[in-house]
């Protein structure tokens, strides 16, 4: 109970101290620094050497102890200076399906006017274990951070913790960055048979697709139209001297087809959205022109990558805009 309260307080304080942004330069206000575990071991070592030197009245050991202590202090500054040279910009966030991990690309700029940052940078989600470590001297931008997702819809990117032990591992410099960007999570596709409707709203009983095949299903022969793919030409017939005849496949149907959400509420809705997601992917991969109807939201029939994204986005956001309107 108490720890929950405490972590809430810390989160609130962090929100105030490091507000969301898309482009963060690390500086005094958003860097934390504290001796690492090895740093404490090092201090204990300094004390031990001091005692050893004092008891043996050995100035050399004392000098060693003081030198290490001096190094500890110098390392504090170097550590901070190095870390404060970083600039982190969030890139284009990917669109994951629910349950998958979203790819959050971070662009890390190590060189500022003052200096260049070095050493390894450890990246973790706030409160989680270190997910990946990058070597700033051999950096290839962007660095992809995986953020797990659970359900569809817009999702905030959790705080991302960056930490560095440069230069000697005595201090840990870290920051918890909040990026002002959201992840749009598509519903997870649920395999099912594709049910489509035609323009009038009638259900297409046989369906344009019988599961996986379709594109290669031979349908009929027609007159060749200039511009049609050459591999659709029925060469056998051409060879027989029947003129240019092209094969027509059931996949390349010219009819406009629609996908539609039948339930509008209840637990069934999510499952239906998942099925629709699968259908969108299926139809898209087979090159269909299709539209999507989700209650009030209409995505007019089209095809291509952009269209697929529009449909999946509509599926992901279905229900969320209503909430935000109210």
């Amino acid at each position: 109970m108490f720890s929950k309260h405490l972590s809430l307080k810390i989160t609130q304080w962090l929100d105030k101290r490091i507000p969301p942004a898309t482009d963060v330069s690390l500086h005094r206000r958003n860097i934390f620094i504290f001796p690492s575990r090895f740093g404490f071991l090092f201090l204990v070592l300094c004390v031990a050497l001091f005692i050893l030197g004092t008891n043996y009245q050995n100035n050399l050991i004392l000098i060693l102890a003081f030198f290490l202590l001096g190094l500890f202090l110098v390392s504090l500054f170097n550590s901070y200076l190095n870390f404060s040279g970083l600039r982190i910009v969030i890139g284009k966030v990917g669109y994951p399906f629910a349950g998958d991990s979203a790819n959050v690309p971070l662009w890390i700029e190590t060189t500022t006017k003052k200096q260049t940052a070095h050493g390894r940078l450890h990246i973790a989600l706030y409160g989680k274990n270190v997910q990946l470590s990058v070597d700033l001297d051999r950096l290839t931008n962007p660095v992809d951070v995986a953020v797990p997702t659970s359900s569809r819809g817009p999702q905030a990117i959790p705080r991302i913790t960056l930490s560095s032990f440069y230069p000697l591992g005595l201090f840990r410099c870290w920051t918890h960055l909040q990026f002002a960007s959201t992840i749009l999570v598509y519903p997870s596709p649920h395999p099912c048979s594709v049910v489509t409707y035609d323009e009038s709203g009638e259900e297409n009983q046989e369906g344009p697709v019988s599961d996986q095949q379709g594109h290669d299903d031979f349908h009929s022969l027609t007159e060749y139209q200039p511009g049609q793919p050459l591999y659709h030409v029925a060469w056998k017939q051409v060879a027989k001297g029947q003129g240019m005849i092209s094969k027509k496949f059931s996949g390349s149907s010219e009819r406009e087809i629609w996908l539609r959400l039948t339930t509008s509420s209840g637990p069934q809705r999510e499952a239906d959205l998942s099925r629709l997601c699968f259908m969108v992917l299926e139809l898209d991969s087979q090159g269909y022109r299709f539209g999507l109807e989700l209650g009030d939201t209409l995505v007019p029939p089209a095809q291509g990558n952009h269209h697929r994204h529009q449909c999946l986005k509509a599926l992901a956001l279905y229900g969320f805009s209503e909430v935000s309107h109210e």
């Binding site: 004092t54 009245q57 100035n59 004392l62 000098i63 003081f66 030198f67 202590l69 001096g70 190094l71 202090l73 110098v74 390392s75 170097n78 230069p167 000697l168």
Partner: peptide, 20 residues
């Protein structure tokens, strides 16, 4: 870093009292 630490080291060596 060592050169930076050295003055600190000397300072400590000079001012920290020598204990028995």
């Amino acid at each position: 870093m060592s050169l930076q630490a050295l003055p600190l080291c000397l300072m400590l060596f000079l001012i920290i009292p020598k204990l028995g």
